[in-house]
Design a protein around this nucleic acid. Sequence first.
DNA 1: GGTGAAAGATTAGAAGG
DNA 2: CCTTCTAATCTTTCACC
Lengths: 164, 164
Amino acid sequence: MSNQNSEPAPRPVDEIDLALLRALQADARAPIGTLSDAAGVSRATAYARLARLREEGIITALTVTVHPKRVGLGVSAVVLIRSTPDNWKTWSSMLPILEAMDEVEYAADLAGEVDLLLLVRLRDVEHLQRFVTEELRGRIPGIGSVRTLLVLNQTPERSLVLPS
Amino acid sequence: MSNQNSEPAPRPVDEIDLALLRALQADARAPIGTLSDAAGVSRATAYARLARLREEGIITALTVTVHPKRVGLGVSAVVLIRSTPDNWKTWSSMLPILEAMDEVEYAADLAGEVDLLLLVRLRDVEHLQRFVTEELRGRIPGIGSVRTLLVLNQTPERSLVLPS
DNA sequence: GGTGAAAGATTAGAAGG
DNA sequence: CCTTCTAATCTTTCACC
């Protein structure tokens, strides 16, 4: 995976692209005919558009969203990390490390009182403890403080709401 | 959408289910034959399993993941909210309000020094300002402090890493 | 439960205007 | 961007293990 903020947007998407993306958000397995109807274009056009959206990286992935608890990941947590001024790695050097951790679903480099935020998915609280003490402090240099916030309730994962 | 933490897991998924889910994570538009091959079962079985996974809510959605910047959402931010002890609504009463806000991609009710975390996607910084001052403070009662952290860099959205 | 086969209907993917 | 084409795939249903 590449850094999501690195490349600028060369060509903006138009209304047809947005309609296709919205239709895919509703059902990624919808047949092309359904998608093309939703966008008001022919199937061939929908094909061409989808290929372009994939090539240009506008479509990051076509995936399934899974209920975490039902697959053995009963605990979610938000980890807020502050760095020590020295020995703190750059984002680009940490990215591969973070992505190699199965527990990390989302990581963000922040401006403000917190330097790094992680959303992690774990089997249980013991798993959380091991993750923070061993994985995190062991592998990421320059960690100052770590605050772990248990998730009590959360929205189901949802896609971006595309602008109109 | 329903609360993701409300229902217990009645029946656990098995290895075949996990294999199907992993194949769908890689490509949600993969033909059934590809999915059934990946899981080592027949197509008929893959059909039956997928129907069951949908019915039981283990599959939350089959969606497309989009690069936010390329669709006009150039700014991401994390909003940390602390409540005032009085007038703070319950999670279940806030959920529909939060889900009605297009800017909110993810919301979590937290245990700890922060009560509510939002991941928001916005067009620009002006949009962020309007969101925090008007949408948030205007619609959610009982907000104590609001800390807004700009996202400088982030991982692309990624699916859960399913356990083995 | 899972299998393999059969069946028509639908869709995919490419070619050409 | 559309229409047209053939091969491939979908999806259900079946009898059987």
